[in-house]
Design a protein around this nucleic acid. Structure first.
Length: 629
DNA sequence: CGCCCACGCGCC
DNA sequence: AAAAGGCGCGTGGGCG
């Protein structure tokens, strides 16, 4: 068991503190070891090399780990007090009186300051100069001159140990510890992802832009293709001065031309067969590419053939990550052909197939739904079980169940699923009812949903008042259902995020143990339920093995009571979460080549058809590695 | 001029 | 097939 070592800054000096008795009521520290700043990486490396290892307890991974990485040291594990505090303070697993007693008020230093997240945009120029970030340890320059506030690391560590100890149910306490470990490991990975970046070939991207948009225009000028399409739109609509980028103007002209639309959104336009629709959709697709991922984007976010962004653990209330800078988590499929491994290196692209319904099945202990997923394609499993008639219906119906759909095809299918899988649907319905009533729901490992806002409660109060009108009631009901859909999804999305974090933590640890003779494999991208590892070709097979083992391990950590369902013919049981694994040169090769191409096919026709030629440089997948549909 | 919002659309 | 959950971000257009 690794021992805790607290890293903190006092009077401008770095102190390493080893608590005497972890969990004691006063974790009175032994005499601190004072470390000169330049010596820190060496000291950390020495402690990391201890047989049992250490767990670094610090106020924020984003404040300390970048400098260590720059100095060539990556810690194995940590306890990120800022992230852990946020979870513990809100978790219904911790008795409410303990939470309010331990953290009675928001503390701006801990609860509001996220300035030490830093900026990917600030990382690259430093690297280009050959500098390190080391001098900024403990005083990260956020670019706007803001300095990190003082945080009492020793006191906060003790508070969190006490809060954990107050969780009387050993199972819930265990899960909460898992969550804090996964969250902290995620923070280490997030900093490493920013530092290492995603391999990105400028030349390849430039070729894509040139092909789809024309040559790079001067700033402020429309690319040639867009200018041509804008001209066609103006001609068709007989609106010579129309700016198709102006939504109000465009809407006026569409209506003047007889299109019965109330917005300019894609799905509404598709309902019309007016000749302008095809041209307009092509324009919108390409305009989006130009503004979101065009030349300016590349100049800003791609340096030295690496795309770098900030990843923000728990940036989403459910526990998912968000990103800042470059739109990292919405990297469009159109440009993934520019994500290219270095020479002699490969990308291992891994997708956790149909993660959310599988997680729901596991949480609910719904053996029928588990069995439906156990043969590979869960959606096909629903068809084979007779629950629904087609795979497409299985998919939209299941998404409807997770999101709270009540109307349309999706909404119609939900009752069928409820009959076939009462336990799974019962779990999300229960979460929805709790939310509608203003209650708090909690993920499998213990992350709780936020309380309702004052405005929400006010709306409910107004509807139950003696003088409540019909409008009050309908507004309150609408807000209540809205919050119910949020809490319904929260438990599944949040638990899926916990599984994914645990998975990534396992992958990260495995990668650290691989030989580095040809270079060290590293995480390159993490997208909710998808991982990309950049690895020397020689290690690709081992990386594939690592991601698959880590997936099995994550399932065993979260759901130790679930044994994979045995197969009738006695072969190896399928894992709870099968992976789609591809070893490739470019990220484009992962674009759902077949069965699971999402149902939104119609939306992709315009730009999608144009980029097909960018796909097709596939390296053969490792035999036996693809386990999904 | 900067700030904030709605819109629309990319990703899961 | 389609008005359902979570995000980031660029744009235009309104405001002070």
């Amino acid at each position: 068991m690794a021992r805790d070592v607290l890293l903190l800054e006092r009077d401008g000096a770095l102190h390493l503190v080893t608590p005497l008795a972890a969990g004691g009521d006063d974790a009175a520290p032994a005499a601190p070891r004072i470390v000169a700043r330049p010596d820190l990486p060496g000291v950390v490396a020495d402690l990391e090399a201890e047989p049992e290892g250490v767990r670094w307890v610090w106020d924020s991974t984003f404040r300390h780990h970048p400098a260590l990485i720059a100095a060539g040291v990556r810690v194995s594990r940590c306890w990120d007090l800022r992230l852990a505090r946020s979870i513990l303070r809100g978790s219904s697993a911790v008795p409410p009186e303990v939470r309010s007693g331990t953290w009675p008020d928001r503390d701006p230093a801990w609860d509001d300051w996220d300035g030490d997240l830093g900026s990917a945009a600030a990382v690259s120029p430093l690297e280009d100069r050959g500098d390190t970030l080391f001098d900024t340890v403990g005083a990260v320059d956020t670019g706007d001159g803001a300095r990190p506030p003082h945080r009492d690391v020793v006191a906060e560590h003790a508070r969190q140990l006490r809060a954990l100890a107050a969780v009387t149910d050993p199972e819930r306490r265990h899960r909460l510890r898992l969550l804090l470990a996964a969250e902290s490991s995620g923070a280490l990975a997030a900093v490493e992802l920013r530092h290492d970046g995603l391999p990105f070939a400028r030349a390849e991207h430039e070729a894509t832009l040139d092909r789809l948009l024309g040559p790079r225009p001067r700033p402020g000028v429309r690319p040639a293709t867009l200018e041509r399409l804008a001209g066609e739109i103006r001609t068709i609509l007989d609106a010579p001065r129309l700016n198709p980028d102006s939504q109000p103007h465009l809407l006026r002209e569409l209506r003047r031309n007889g299109l019965d639309v109330s917005s300019t959104s894609k799905w509404e336009l598709q309902g019309s067969d007016h000749p302008v629709v095809a041209v307009l959709l092509e324009y919108k697709g390409l305009a989006r590419l130009a503004s979101a991922n065009g030349w300016h984007w590349m100049d800003t976010w791609v340096r030295a053939d690496r795309f770098r962004s900030d990843y923000v653990p728990s940036g989403v209330v459910t526990g998912r990550w968000s990103s800042r800078g470059g739109g990292a988590l919405s990297l469009p499929k159109v440009i993934r052909s520019a994500v290219v491994a270095d020479p002699g290196w490969s990308l291992v692209i891994v997708d956790a197939a149909q993660l959310e319904p599988r997680i729901l099945a596991a949480m609910a202990g719904d053996t029928a739904l588990l069995a439906a997923g156990a043969r590979g394609d869960l959606y096909q499993g629903l068809v084979d079980a007779g629950a629904v008639d087609t795979r497409a219906h299985a998919k939209v119906g299941m998404l409807g169940a997770l999101y709270g759909s009540t109307s349309g095809t999706s909404g119609m299918l939900v009752p069928r699923l409820a009959r076939a899988y009462p336990r799974a649907l019962g779990l999300v319905d229960g979460a929805a009812r709790t939310g509608e009533a203003g209650g708090v729901v909690t993920t499998w490992l213990g992350r709780s949903s936020p309380p309702t806002s004052a405005a929400w409660r006010e709306a409910q109060g107004a509807a139950s008042g003696i003088d409540a009108g019909a409008a009050d009631e309908s507004r309150a009901r609408s807000r209540a259902r809205e919050w119910g859909r949020f809490t319904r999804n929260f438990v599944v999305q949040g638990t899926a995020a916990e599984w994914a974090l645990s998975w990534m933590a396992g992958v990260r640890q495995s990668l650290r143990r691989l030989p580095t003779g040809d270079g060290a494999p590293h995480l390159a991208f993490f997208l909710h339920d998808e991982l990309v590892v950049h690895t020397p070709d020689t290690l690709a097979v081992h990386v594939v093995d690592a991601v698959e083992r880590a997936a099995v391990q994550a399932s065993a950590l979260l759901f130790p009571h679930l044994r994979p369902p045995p197969t009738a013919d006695g072969r190896e049981p399928r894992p709870l979460v099968p992976l789609d694994v591809v070893v490739a040169r470019t990220y484009a090769e992962s674009v759902d080549a077949g069965a699971d191409a999402d149902a939104e096919g119609a939306a992709d026709t315009e730009v999608g058809a144009l980029v097909d030629e960018g796909v097709g440089t596939a390296v053969a997948p490792v035999p036996g590695s693809a386990t999904g549909s």
